[in-house]
Amino acid sequence: MSAPQWMDARNILCVRRDSMGDVLMCTPTMRALKQARPGRMLTLPSSASGTALAPYPDDVDAAITYAAPWMKAGASPSVAPRPAA
């Protein structure tokens, strides 16, 4: 994908299947992706502890909790839209 096509992306999946701290360290990247194009939607698929952060950064629009088989036991897959402000 060339740079102009990438800039047109409206829906981005920011995959980080680690714990809360790892997701927190990615928030500057998520902010930059969100601010690069008005109207862009960011979805965060992560572990249960990672998606627990989703309500706090304004840049995450939705979160998907997924207990990857190689991670410690966690919650079953679910999708949680960001609560309306």
Rank of each mutant, 00 (worst) to 15 (best):
P69I: 02
G39P: 08
P57K: 08
G50D: 01
P55N: 07
A67E: 12
I12T: 11
R40Q: 10
C14R: 11
A32W: 13
P38H: 11
M7G: 10
D22T: 07
Y66P: 00
T29E: 13
S19A: 14
V23P: 12
T65N: 03
Y66G: 04
P81V: 01
M7E: 15
L33D: 05
A54N: 07
V60G: 01
D61H: 06
S76K: 15
P77S: 10
D8P: 03
T29S: 15
P77M: 10
R10C: 10
R82L: 10
R82P: 03
A63I: 12
S2G: 15
K34G: 02
K72P: 13
M20L: 14
I64F: 02
L53F: 08
R37L: 13
T65P: 09
Q35V: 09
T51C: 15
V60Q: 02
S76A: 15
D8V: 08
V60R: 11
T51M: 08
T51R: 04
L24E: 08
M1I: 12
D22I: 04
V15E: 07
T65G: 06
A67N: 14
M20Y: 08
M41N: 07
M25Y: 03
P81N: 01
P38E: 14
D18I: 05
P69C: 05
P57G: 01
M41P: 00
M20I: 13
T51L: 00
A85M: 09
C14L: 14
G74T: 03
P4I: 06
N11S: 12
R17D: 09
P4T: 05
S47N: 03
P55H: 06
D18L: 09
A75Y: 11
S49C: 09
M7D: 15
A80H: 14
L42D: 06
A48T: 06
G39T: 03
A62P: 04
L44D: 03
Q5L: 15
G50E: 01
P57D: 09
T51V: 14
S78M: 10
A54Y: 08
V15S: 07
C14M: 10
L13Y: 04
